[in-house]
């Protein structure tokens, strides 16, 4: 009777997972995520920032980990922009280049719609340092530069850094209060940990590397991190509570809710598959 559970076609499972994910997306259902201490720590670190020094955001992700890293980076950027903390976008991953330009522009446009009369401008509120080839050598070069404006020379649009108001008082790593690094790539996160010593370090990882990221959080090498999309969803809840004018806009909650439904289907199939195996053996 239960033997058919052992022979369910994988394509039926795919369809059921897709439907379970699609339904909450179509009806815009969003479930409240579980609180996460790591995202709390990330949030607190950003809340404590004072205008003056800049934040360096290394968005080292491409289309492969976009689903998790993009909402993380978008929420962190939104938080910084709402607090009027200046930041510089950078990446050591070539495929990240479009996001370095697009992410702050999208968030600024959304905030300007939300708060008519307020403006967030390129050069004053954020800059794009672009893709920096060379991986760990580039990271080490920036960390050791006596004057970052001389070392990097121009931004991604070939504008001399000296001409950008945000970089007026920024010379060395000492003028960076915080490093935010978002990646799903092995080795890139380690390179930043190894060669960018000084500023407080916040990290956004994909779900694959969550267990590994806890080692760095425990040893205080990172002050907080996003546990994949679930961490970003909890951060979004905190952001909405801190800034109620944000309204119902959600970027991570929607994906996280779909993920919860997909997990339920997978769990159901694990239980059913095992039940089929168990009852099938008993019959034999």
């Amino acid at each position: 009777m239960f033997s058919f559970l052992e022979r369910v076609d994988r394509r039926i499972i795919y369809i059921l997972v897709a439907v379970s994910v699609a339904v909450p997306l179509i009806f815009n259902v969003s479930l409240r995520p579980a609180p996460m201490a790591t995202a709390d720590a990330f949030f607190t670190a950003v809340e404590r920032l004072e205008p003056g020094k800049i934040v360096l955001i290394s968005a080292d992700f491409g289309p492969g980990t976009l689903a998790e890293n993009r909402p993380q980076a978008e929420l962190a950027i939104e938080h910084l922009m709402r607090k009027r903390i200046g930041f510089a976008m950078i990446s050591v991953y070539a495929l990240a280049s479009p996001f370095l330009r697009q992410l702050p522009e999208d968030v600024a446009a959304r905030l300007e719609r939300e708060m008519p009369g307020q403006k967030w401008e390129y050069g004053k509120d954020w800059i794009n340092l672009g893709f920096q080839p060379g991986g760990m050598i580039a990271i080490q070069g920036i960390a050791k530069a006596e004057d970052m404006r001389v070392f990097l020379k121009t931004d991604a649009n070939n504008i001399p850094l000296e001409d950008l108001p945000l970089m007026k008082d920024v010379k060395s790593i000492k003028d960076i209060s915080l490093l935010m690094q978002f990646t799903g790539l092995l080795g890139v996160f380690n390179a930043w940990v190894q060669y960018f010593q000084g500023p407080l370090f916040l990290h956004g990882c994909t779900s694959v590397t969550i267990p590994e990221a806890f080692i760095y959080f425990s040893s205080k090498q990172i002050a907080g991190f996003f546990e994949g999309i679930a961490g970003a969803a909890w951060y979004e809840v905190m952001l909405s509570e801190r800034f109620p004018q944000r309204g119902s806009y959600n970027v991570a909650l929607r994906v996280n809710t779909g993920l919860s439904f997909a997990h339920l289907v997978v769990l159901a199939f694990i239980v059913l598959g095992n039940a089929g195996l168990l009852f099938g053996r008993r019959k034999e």
Partner: peptide, 22 residues
Amino acid sequence: AFFGSTIMARMALLVERLDFLI
């Protein structure tokens, strides 16, 4: 834990793509 979190990451990719399609 690594296997579970890997599944979660792959599922997140699926959810994001379906979100885009819908």
